[in-house]
Amino acid sequence: MISFILLALLNGLCIGASRAINGRLGSHIGAFPTSWWNHAVGFALLSALLLLTPGPTPALLETLHSAPLLSYAGGVIGVLFVALNSHVLPRIGTTRTAVLVISGQMVTGVLLDFHGQWHTSTLAQLAGVALIVAGIYLSRRPVKPAASLATR
């Protein structure tokens, strides 16, 4: 369990680093070209990892047949996600990007995990969502997107 916790924490650092690096590239070449570089470099790295990993690699055709079609949409959603991050981060900063992405993530997570049954925990989840929404409401204040770029 501890190792899973550490892996998930490390994942957060990886997300932050990827987002910050892509934000920098995005401010030079644009959000969608940045998204392409992100996926192409990632694909190359993962191809190498797959080749180097010992043990059974799942048969490509078998997986293609058995997994539901919708599960392949993750890659397409990822393109939009990276483009949005690259656009937003140089304009509103790393912390605020992280906090707002997290807010969207958590509320969506609650919705995805909700299967129509009300428990006592549902109330606590709603309270959590309310806290997040309150936080987002607080964050709504005038932002000057040009200033951050000009002072660089």
């Binding site: 392949y72 939009l80 656009h87 969207g104 964050s139």
Partner: peptide, 18 residues
């Protein structure tokens, strides 16, 4: 931009799920 960041979070949760 704040709304776009929020949308990014929605997309991320969906992406991780898929």
């Amino acid at each position: 931009n704040l709304l776009l960041a929020l949308l990014g979070g929605v997309l991320l949760a969906l992406m991780i799920k898929l």
